[in-house]
């Protein structure tokens, strides 16, 4: 899938961003906006994410695996219940913990290229 194709898939999609670092969430906002998606969030806490999922029609989500001292696994579970696709991203080199907790989940490692984010989300939306 080319970037253009991926961006088409994202166009108009409502993407939930769960990331508590301002700089990184700003970056993701820019990437998603650049691909024509609408950003829901960014959420900086689990509670905020839970609220936004219930209140919005989310197309897909992108979650930082670690949020403060917690993980976003509860958010992933909630998304799964709603049948909403999602991707994780993480600074962890070893992604086994995520894979075992959430089998089959797509994981992007930091630092990331914008095309990787866009392609991954387009892929799960497909």
């Amino acid at each position: 899938m080319t970037y253009a194709e991926a961006a088409r898939a994202l166009n108009g999609a409502r993407i939930l961003v769960v990331e508590d670092d301002f700089l990184i969430s700003t970056e993701i906002d820019s990437i998603l906006a650049g691909a024509g998606a609408m950003v829901v969030g960014p959420c900086r806490t689990l509670a905020q994410a839970e609220r936004l999922i219930e209140a919005n029609h989310i197309s897909a989500a992108i979650l930082d695996f670690r949020l403060g001292h917690d993980t976003t696994l509860p958010v992933a579970a909630q998304l799964h219940r709603h049948g909403i696709p999602f991707v994780f991203f993480t600074g962890q080199m070893n992604t086994r913990q995520i894979e075992s907790a959430c089998p089959g989940a797509k994981v992007i490692t930091k630092p990331f290229q914008s095309r990787t984010i866009v392609a991954a989300l387009a892929d799960v939306l497909h």
């Binding site: 670092d21 700089l23 990184i24 700003t26 970056e27 820019s30 993480t90 600074g91 962890q92 080199m93 070893n94 490692t109 930091k110 630092p111 990331f112």
Partner: peptide, 20 residues
């Protein structure tokens, strides 16, 4: 593991700073 994590995260922060 933590160090690798921090380095990667810091790289992401630097990337974000650069882009923004």
């Amino acid at each position: 593991g933590e160090l690798a994590h921090r380095v990667r995260n810091t790289l992401a922060v630097v990337q974000a700073i650069a882009h923004q």
